[in-house]
Design a binder for these strands. Sequence first.
DNA 1: TTGTAGGCGTTATCAA
DNA 2: TTGATAACGCCTACAA
Lengths: 334, 334
Amino acid sequence: MRRPTMTDVAREVGVTAKTVSRVLNDDGPVAIETRERVMAAVRKLGYQPNLMARNMRVGARDAAIGLVIPEMGNPFFGTVAGGIESAVRARGLTLIVGSSSETADLEQSLIATFLARRVSALIVVPSATGDHRYLRSERVAGLPIVFLDRPAVGLTADSVVSGNRSGAQAGIAHLIGYGHRRIGFIGDLPATLYTRRERLQGYRDALEEAGLPFDRALVETGHDQEAARAATLRLLALENPPTALFAANNFASMGAVVALARAGRRDVALVGFDDLPLAEVLDPPLTVVAQDPAAIGEVAAELVLSRLDGDRSRARRALVPTRLIVRGSGELSP
Amino acid sequence: MRRPTMTDVAREVGVTAKTVSRVLNDDGPVAIETRERVMAAVRKLGYQPNLMARNMRVGARDAAIGLVIPEMGNPFFGTVAGGIESAVRARGLTLIVGSSSETADLEQSLIATFLARRVSALIVVPSATGDHRYLRSERVAGLPIVFLDRPAVGLTADSVVSGNRSGAQAGIAHLIGYGHRRIGFIGDLPATLYTRRERLQGYRDALEEAGLPFDRALVETGHDQEAARAATLRLLALENPPTALFAANNFASMGAVVALARAGRRDVALVGFDDLPLAEVLDPPLTVVAQDPAAIGEVAAELVLSRLDGDRSRARRALVPTRLIVRGSGELSP
DNA sequence: TTGTAGGCGTTATCAA
DNA sequence: TTGATAACGCCTACAA
């Protein structure tokens, strides 16, 4: 019932394990006839090489990369993971994943497990509250680490992020172009989150460029769909309410859409950050600043692979551009 | 620059590797003072146990389970994967994933990689065209294999699927209850796909129960959103068109929603299989037969764990119930 | 309470 | 062209 090993195959053929190894890895000279007999025995016994043993012997590195994302069910991170997986598989690497639920503890324990497995590289979407100083020794030891969507805290390392600031700026400028002068901003929690800060900065950039004042009362927070809905209502109830809204992530977008729909407010313009599958079916269809999650994953994978190939240049921050998709909700005039 | 090993720690303390091992695994008696000195050395050297070596020695099995899904960006499968990961991690197992893009070749090569890594179990969403006879020897050898969303072909094995037939029947019965007698069905490709067959059977069950005739002209196919949109238009253009539609998966739902919205047809009732994030914002809000992807993942994980615990009973098929969510689109009368 | 010998399945090294 | 031996890092079995 035991699974056959290389030694079993060798015995079957009447050679040594090393010869079988040579055949299977195309390593060193083997007589053609020997090769054929080995292959025949491999088939006969149903032998499958043991990658664990191989990895351990060869590199002391597992031919796998570890990926930590906040939530696998989120299509944004799922798509990112898919982009990574296909890019990395082409190089014979396997993907090991874990979800952190956006908590620093889980993130750290997942990373510890991955390190214990001796993964070849680490790709991490850092949780909002984490600190990554503890990874310094790994960096020094040469382990490739790439941070996704948000940069690391307390650690100089590669990162791949969306063009948050320029994307938000483009979205706001779009609204300003349609005549809006008071634009509500609905962002994530906590307010210190990198993406929130960057997008808010893009918002301010656009205002400044257009010579419009920044009004703190127009900046609201909604960390999930329900909270974003409430935030939208608060904005609309202001004494001097906004004529347009900018939803800084997809939960915020959904909340704003629901709030506007239920209130029957078809006069309020809306631009969302991050695309939604049904955006074009909404009434009005939702104009968005779309991210490119697949590209983010691929860029991260390429960065990791180049590091594995020996690229020792200093840490990079790759910006993946966003794209404004005009559909209707962002083109309503005040 | 080398990573410290158990032997390094042992040398630092002046004991044997075995003693360090005992401390780290809480295995066997160790003097309190020795334990403390070992722990101190572990911290000082930054020692991390090598899981590869441990797995190899202990079980000849990797403490990981392999998961093959069609597409990581699909929130349904992403959520399933999340459910599996959290359930399995609680047992110290890691999740290795790969996406098959719904092709049998990729699926098989991923499974081969996982087997080579000696994963402890396999969870697979089988691609539509595959055949799983080749896994028989693994089954016989005692490897737990659970199929998700669709059963295996050519292999007796555990599976976890949604209540496709009863769910579809409930959705159709709901429409019939509102007076519809001609109901269009928009399903996936290929028509032989398990979920498609089951849901269509539920459709027929409901018709039969209500004494309504089955009209093949009302059964259409749309394998993605665009195709489903076209299929919807074909149904509406029939000489004797349906007054209600049943979209048998979420792409079909989206296609149908788009088609109806663009045609301005608010008179056609619609029930979708599988929920959508924005369903309640649509006009009219979308009534659906919701699946429970997180539960599917958890049930699969539990099944795997019970097999790992030695449950040798015959293969089971677990049915995860669906739930009808009434929102408006399914309650329009003809 | 601790140590020694041996082996998991593979590959590196050197010799034949 | 092939083999013998040792080693990767850890744990099991047994002995001290």
